[in-house]
Computed example of a mutant assay.
Amino acid sequence: MSLEFSVLASGSTGNAIYVGTEKHKLLVDAGLSGKKLEELFAKAHLDPKDLDGLLVTHEHSDHIKGLGIFARRYKLPIYANAKTWDAMSGLIGEVPVDQKFHFDMETVKTFDDLDVESFGVSHDAAEPMFYVFHHEGKKLSIATDLGYVSDRIKGTIRDSDMMIFESNHDINMLMMGRYPWNVKRRILGDMGHVSNEDAGAALADVIGDQTKRIYLAHLSKDNNMKDLARLSVQQTLEQNGFSIGDKIDLYDTDPMNPTLVTRL
């Protein structure tokens, strides 16, 4: 079986992404209740009993809300870096020692036939990091919660077959919206989130010959809309010479419904 994935949930209310091969199956983040995660697995026609582990990106609630209960229920090992483990203390309940593992930033771990590469991002968490998955020449990158997209990140995710990439907010909606100024400043800052416009500009720098699908992720429920994000990113990419709908397709993600399981 090839590399497969489903964005089970993505957005400011909760995030979880399934990635698997024939020999190893992982869940990246568990930012919803245990019950809701099980419902999402069922909708995607996946079985959480098949999971072999949980990868954590950072300690914010929308990424770890159901982490402890899900790991305990299915006896899953949890992988996170040391600072994230410290930051999660008291947030996920007691986790048995034999289920706690360290995955350092800027390293590669091999899980049977799946190589997972971690990389750091700029976000207001202890030590946030995301992942690139490699399997039999195929490459899937996950990059959200980005204050900005550095050249180092671009080099890491460049020419992925599939990308799950943040398109958090429309700047005008954010500025005109109900959030207090300190929250707006945090979102717009270098440790906040990437706008639709900045997502398009960054993607224009990392799309390669292998790139086929881009999933726009972590949309704000208050400051974005699916159609707006897709049209904004598409317009920026087309201005940079990319033909959307030809060799490259843009896909939505949803906070309540999983994407179809896709195989590379």
Rank of each mutant, 00 (worst) to 15 (best):
L3P: 05
L3Y: 13
S10Q: 02
V19H: 00
V19L: 06
G20F: 11
E22M: 05
H24F: 14
K25F: 09
L26T: 00
V28Q: 02
V28Y: 01
L32F: 07
L37E: 10
E38Y: 07
F41C: 04
H45I: 04
P48H: 14
K49C: 04
H60V: 11
A71M: 04
R73T: 10
A80G: 11
T84W: 03
T84Y: 00
T84L: 00
W85P: 01
D86N: 10
M88W: 02
G90V: 02
P96W: 07
F101G: 10
H102K: 09
F103V: 03
M105K: 15
M105D: 15
F111Q: 01
D113F: 13
L114R: 08
D115L: 01
S118H: 08
V121P: 06
D124Q: 05
P128A: 06
Y131C: 11
F133S: 01
F133A: 00
A143P: 01
D145V: 03
L146I: 06
R152P: 12
I157S: 04
S160E: 05
S160K: 04
F165H: 08
S167I: 04
N168K: 12
N168W: 12
H169I: 10
H169Y: 12
D170A: 12
I171F: 08
M173W: 15
K184C: 07
R186Y: 15
L188M: 14
G189C: 10
D190L: 15
G192V: 08
G192A: 07
V194M: 10
L203H: 08
G208Y: 09
Q210T: 07
K212Y: 05
L216M: 15
L216S: 13
A217P: 05
A217N: 02
L219D: 14
D222N: 10
D222I: 02
D227R: 06
L228H: 04
R230S: 03
L231D: 13
S232E: 01
Q235V: 09
T236D: 06
N240W: 10
I244F: 06
D249M: 03
L250Y: 04
D254S: 07
P255H: 01
T259L: 07
V261C: 13
R263I: 15
L264D: 14
